[in-house]
Design a binder for these strands. Structure first.
Lengths: 330, 330
DNA sequence: GTGAAAGCGCTAACAT
DNA sequence: ATGTTAGCGCTTTCAC
């Protein structure tokens, strides 16, 4: 196929070892021969064979990325920045998608191991001690993103609990006293990794408590959450109700439903999302939500992974910033 | 790291060659030794080293995927199905994102070549003879998706021209006689690959012609197309105007703008999109658009690539189906 | 400063 | 049916 180190060696009248020294600027070579070899390599458009190099060095320059899917815009954004940063750092990206299936996630990881990836960035769907052990047994640097597995892994994300707490406090500040909390993933408790969702939920409860709201929120974990909301009535006088959704996507569905019922937002009922996904800009009324920079997640995740790969360990990454976006739905 | 073929050979008291025969069920081995070897391999949880195999066979079992980015929901969907089908077929996916930068696209392709991918699936941003030659020089199977490069490459997509033509005929059938065609990418004519957009535009013109509309459409290729639309007036009597957008995303922006101006859709002005991106379901009024199955694109692209890789060539893939979704915006 | 040689783990052609 | 051997292209250690 391509031109090899050996051919260059023959042309330059040196040994393969010397060519290697020149091309990977390692010590033990005169400037003259080095320059010559580099020039010849350039002329022949020499391209190193990464497979061969991997085999010899035991490193593949590949980072495996494990995500649910790419349907959620945030994941797409995340992947986008991971790809960019990886390529910038000279790494390849091997992407596998779990479709939120825990078994499939393991298959995905196996797939990456076959590929002998140097590190893994994962938005985990599995959780618990067994999985933690499993990950450790892989003997590969792992960076967790958006969902914690255990304290033993680098984690990139925001303080979801605190963010949701502040969001709830913000809502209380607007005079709402009744709350509905929409979070279907909570029904997967014990089945899949819902760390982040649990955090947000805990934050909600904390927020209510601090605001002195004693009436517990109505918690909707139903997969058919729109149907559940459909069975509730709103807009019939004070105190007003706020529907807090753990993700914008739920909030959008709920908004659609509320509009369909002819309810006014926020006059009849308040609505809050989380994530600030970009389609919000096409939505009226503007959804109040929590924003954070997903691209930063990707960037930090790659840096953290590379640091672990190349230095053996990485400094813990601080939780990333977020902020409440005041829309018109609360 | 892992257990090797050699170790298994030693344990079983046979040669590495025999182990290879057993593990890759190749002829020339007795059932007995084969069974034994397989059993030992299983017990030791033997995992073949794909790097070594690649080096020996000259094939990497990797398909490179070149996309603009993942921001457009359709690309994400596309990538999702590509990943799924690749893994099903035992291939790895190496994803690179060009961010619509022609130079970057070449870098991305080089990146894939370094990786020695067996085939490439590309939504090309480059075009023209030079690029066509370049692709040929790579000596790797290439499948083009969503944007043609030349007739020499397998292409996966719909008949955009015909689809847009039918869409325009549909609009005419609703009594519209004035047209605005929104397609910012047309301003990149001569700079990047806008094959699909050109097709849609041509389809629009053809449709108008066949419907006997002689007044040429107002063509908006301005990057600030919303601003351009903002300088036009609508709703001032018959004949009515339809704003045809070459992608839903433009239509959504325009819709936002029109609503902001207090114009009623479709009473004052009609609006048409293309692609049926999924966020449409959150939008009122429902946007009339053209739908097709992006997942099929991915599936077919992978199959076509694999066919080329494994058989040396692939049967041409027929253009995929589409259909007009009648919303409430026309 | 440079060369020779032994791998990395697997495959494949050739012996036996 | 099985063993032997020579690579794949690059890295790395050890001589010179």
């Amino acid at each position: 196929m391509g031109v090899t180190i050996k051919e260059i060696a023959v042309i330059c009248g040196v040994s393969p070892g010397t060519v290697d020294r020149a091309l990977n600027d390692r010590p033990g070579i005169s400037e003259k021969t080095k320059a010559k070899i580099i020039e010849v390599a350039r002329q022949l458009n020499y391209q190193p064979d990464y497979m061969a190099r991997s085999l010899a060095k035991g490193r593949t320059m590949t980072i495996g990325v494990v995500l649910f899917d790419l349907y959620n815009r945030s994941f797409a954004q995340l992947m986008n920045s991971i790809e960019a940063e990886c390529r910038r750092q000279g790494y390849f990206v091997d992407l596998v998608l779990t479709n939120k299936d825990p078994d499939n996630e393991k298959k995905c990881i196996e797939h990456l191991l076959h590929r002998k990836v140097d590190g893994i960035i994962i938005f985990a769907i599995n959780y618990g001690e067994a999985f933690d052990h499993y990950l450790k047994s892989l003997n590969v640097p792992v960076v967790t993103v958006c969902n914690r597995v255990s304290g033993d892994w680098s984690y990139i994300g925001i303080d979801d609990r605190k963010a949701m707490k502040e969001a709830v406090q913000y809502i209380c500040g607007k005079g709402y006293e009744r709350f509905v909390y929409v979070c279907p993933p909570l029904s997967y408790r014990g089945k899949t990794n819902i760390f982040t969702q649990e955090e947000r939920f805990a934050g909600c409860l904390e927020g209510l408590k601090e605001c002195g709201i004693h009436e517990p929120p109505v918690i909707v974990t139903d997969k058919d959450y729109v149907g559940a909301i459909g069975r509730m009535s709103f807009g019939d006088g004070e105190p007003r109700t706020a529907i807090v959704c753990s993700c914008d996507i739920y909030a959008l569905e709920v908004m659609n439903h509320l509009k369909g019922r002819g309810l006014r937002i926020p006059e009849d009922v308040g609505l809050m999302g989380f994530d600030n996904i970009d389609v919000l800009k096409y939505v009226t009324p503007a959804l109040t939500t929590v924003e954070y920079d997903v691209e930063q997640f990707g960037l930090q995740a790659v840096r953290c992974a590379v640091e672990q790969i190349e230095q053996g360990s990485a400094a813990p990454v601080p939780l990333l910033p977020y902020r409440i976006i005041a829309g018109a739905s609360i």
